[in-house]
Design a protein around this nucleic acid. Structure first.
Length: 485
RNA sequence: GCCCCCGUCGUCUAGCGGCCCAGGACGCCGCCCUUUCAAGGCGGAGAUCGCGGGUUCGAAUCCCGCCGGGGGCACCA
C-alpha cells in the first residue's frame, strides 16, 4: 500500500512556521516512501474563513517547493478536496452512525449547554456535555424533532472502559472513556466538525499516515472510537510537536516573523527555510546540518522524529541562509537578489552588472535583503551622506584633512590615466602611494573606500572600483576631496 | 478542577546499559588570515543529562515518585 499523507489546513489566515513544518514532515514522509501527498482544505468553520486563505496556503507551499499530487486546484481520484464541497458525504456518514446507534441527535440549546458547563465548573468538575439527549424516549424525540429545527449529531461515547490509542512518536496511550464526552460530529448549520470531516476524508482519500499538530493528541481517542464505529482501520498517527518562541511560549507575532511567507519577503531562501525547519524536531545524524532536498527525502522518516517541542532559533536560520547564499552561483544570487535591490533603487537593475557584483558580496550577506545595504552604492546617484570622520578614519588622517585631500588627489592622479581598468592594475597603482605618504596601506584604502562607496564596511575595494568604472570612481574621489577642502 | 504530552550546554540536537566525568551545530569569546566588513581556519568558555529514589558490576540511557513546562477539556480547527 503506497504511503499517502496530507496537509489539511483551515483557511483562517496565513500559514505560519509551525503549520508549514508539519506540512513539510508529511510531504517528506510521502516523498521518502515514493507515495503521494495531498492538499485538502478544511473550511467547515464558516465563521473563521479568511479571504484569500486558500491561496495563501498554496502560495506558501509552492514557494517552498512542497508540491502536492492531489488538491483543490488540480483535482484527483478523490475530488473534491475542499470540505465545504463534500457536505453530502459527511451527512451520509453521520446517518450511518445514527443508523448504527453510534450517534444521536441532540436538541440542546447553546444556552442550556452554557449553564451546564458553568454549573460543572462551579462544582470543580470537568466541563462536559451531560448527555441530556442521549437517552430520550421515542416520544420525546419525536416531539423535539417537531419543535426544534436545528439539531446537532453527537457521537455516543462509551460510558466506561478504555480506548487505546497509538502515536508513532509516543507509543500507546490509553484514555479512560469516562473522561470523554459525547462530542458533536455534525453542527446545526449542516457542516461537520473536524472530527467527522477529517476522519471521513482521511479514510476515503486513503491516507495512511496522519501527520498533524500535537494539540490533537487529546482528541485521538475520539477518532479511534469513530474509526471503530465505522469499522475502518485507523491510519498511523504522527503528532508533531510545537514550535516555541525564544521565551518557550507559543510562537507568535511577538517573536518576530511568524507567517512563513514573511521569510520570503525579508530575503530568506526557501531551501534554507526547508533545511532549517526539517532540523526542528528531526535530525539526519549527529553532525550533518546542511543537506539538499534529495538527501533530506532519502533520509527522512518518522523514526528520527522527536516528540518534544523545539524553540525557534532565528539566529541559526540566519546563519543557514548565509550558507545557502554562499553556495549559490553568482548568477543565481544576482537573479534572486535583484528584486530587493530594485525596490530600493526604484528602477531596473542591470542583471549582468549585478552578476559581476555578486561574488563580491556573496560571503558578506545573510539574507537577500542585505544586498541593499551591501551594494546599493553601485546603483545610486548623487553624493553620499557619510560623515567626515568616517572618511578620515581613526588613524593618520583623523586630524589631517588636508593630508587626506592630498592623498585623494594622488589616488586620482594615479588611477585616472590607467590604461587597463581592472582591480589588479588599480591596486598596483594605489598601494605604492601609501608608502610614499608614509601611511599604512589600510589607512589609505579606508579613505578611498568611504569616498567611493560611502560606507566604512564594503566589498573589496579594487574589485568594487573595477565594477564601478573609471568615470564614477574618479567622480566620487573628486567629490570627497572637495568636501575636505 | 480533570485528562494527556514533554524534560541532554542559552538554543537546535547526537545518544537508544559500558565507546560519554556526554559528541556536533548556532550564538558568544580569543587567535590566525586580511585593505574595511565578512567568509574561512584554529582554539576556548558553556550540560552535576529537571530532581529524588531504586534495578544493575555499571544508567543520560530501564522502573517508580516528585517538580517544572506545554497542550486539551467548543455546534474552532
Amino acid at each position: 500500500m503506497p504511503v499517502r499523507t496530507r496537509y489539511a489546513p483551515s483557511p483562517t489566515g496565513e500559514p505560519h512556521i509551525g503549520n508549514i513544518r508539519t506540512a513539510l514532515f508529511a510531504w517528506l514522509l510521502a516523498q521518502h516512501h515514493g507515495g503521494q501527498f495531498l492538499l485538502r482544505i478544511e473550511d467547515t468553520d464558516r465563521q473563521r474563513l479568511v479571504e484569500g486563505g486558500v491561496e495563501a496556503q498554496m502560495e506558501t507551499l509552492r514557494w517552498l517547493g512542497i508540491d502536492w499530487d492531489e488538491g483543490p486546484d488540480k483535482g484527483g481520484p478523490h475530488a473534491p478536496y475542499t470540505q465545504s464541497e463534500r457536505l453530502d458525504i459527511y451527512h451520509e456518514h453521520a446517518d450511518r452512525l445514527l443508523a448504527a446507534d453510534s450517534a444521536y441527535r441532540c436538541y440542546c440549546s447553546s444556552e442550556r449547554l452554557d449553564e451546564v458547563r458553568k454549573a460543572q465548573q462551579a462544582r470543580k468538575e470537568p466541563p462536559r456535555y451531560d448527555r441530556h439527549c442521549r437517552d430520550l424516549s421515542a416520544d420525546d424525540r419525536a416531539q423535539r424533532e417537531a419543535e426544534v429545527t436545528p439539531a446537532v449529531v453527537r457521537f455516543k461515547t462509551p460510558l466506561d472502559g478504555e480506548t487505546l490509542t497509538r502515536d508513532a512518536l509516543r507509543g500507546e496511550v490509553p484514555f479512560a472513556n469516562d473522561t470523554l464526552d459525547d462530542f458533536v460530529v455534525l453542527k446545526s448549520d449542516g457542516y461537520p466538525t473536524y472530527h467527522l470531516a477529517a476522519l471521513v476524508d482521511d479514510h476515503l482519500m486513503e491516507i495512511t499516515h496522519v501527520v498533524r499538530g500535537e494539540e490533537w493528541i487529546s482528541s485521538l481517542p475520539r477518532h479511534v472510537l469513530l474509526y471503530q464505529a465505522f469499522g475502518w482501520e485507523p491510519p498511523v498517527f504522527v503528532h508533531v510537536s510545537r514550535i516555541l518562541g525564544s521565551d518557550r511560549a507559543k510562537l507568535s507575532k511577538r517573536h518576530g516573523a511568524h507567517a512563513a511567507l514573511t521569510y520570503r519577503d525579508i530575503g530568506y531562501l526557501p531551501e534554507a527555510l526547508v533545511n532549517f525547519l526539517a532540523l526542528l524536531g528531526w535530525s539526519l545524524d549527529d553532525k550533518t546540518e546542511i543537506f539538499d532536498r534529495e538527501t533530506l527525502i532519502a533520509a527522512f522518516d518518522v523514526d528520527r522524529l522527536l516528540p518534544n517541542p523545539a524553540v525557534f532559533n532565528a539566529e541559526k536560520l540566519e546563519w543557514m541562509n548565509g550558507m545557502y547564499i554562499r553556495n549559490l552561483t553568482p548568477e543565481a544570487l544576482a537573479e534572486r537578489a535583484r528584486p530587493f535591490l530594485e525596490e530600493k533603487v526604484e528602477g531596473p537593475v542591470d542583471a549582468q552588472k549585478l552578476a559581476q557584483i555578486a561574488p563580491l558580496i556573496q560571503e558578506r550577506i545573510k539574507t537577500l535583503a542585505d544586498v541593499v545595504e551591501m551594494a546599493d552604492f553601485f546603483f545610486t546617484e548623487g553624493p553620499f551622506a557619510y560623515e567626515r570622520s568616517d572618511l578620515l578614519g581613526k588613524k593618520s588622517f583623523a586630524d589631517a584633512p588636508d593630508r587626506a585631500a592630498e592623498a585623494l588627489a594622488a589616488v586620482i592622479a594615479a588611477v585616472e590615466p590607467l590604461s587597463g581598468w581592472d582591480h589588479e592594475a588599480l591596486e598596483a597603482a594605489v598601494r605604492p602611494l601609501a608608502e610614499e605618504m608614509g601611511v599604512k596601506a589600510g589607512e589609505l584604502f579606508t579613505v578611498v573606500r568611504v569616498a567611493v562607496t560611502g560606507k566604512t564596511a564594503a566589498p573589496p575595494l579594487f574589485e568594487t572600483m573595477e565594477v564601478l568604472g573609471r568615470d564614477l570612481s574618479v567622480e566620487r574621489l573628486s567629490a570627497a576631496r572637495e568636501r575636505l577642502a
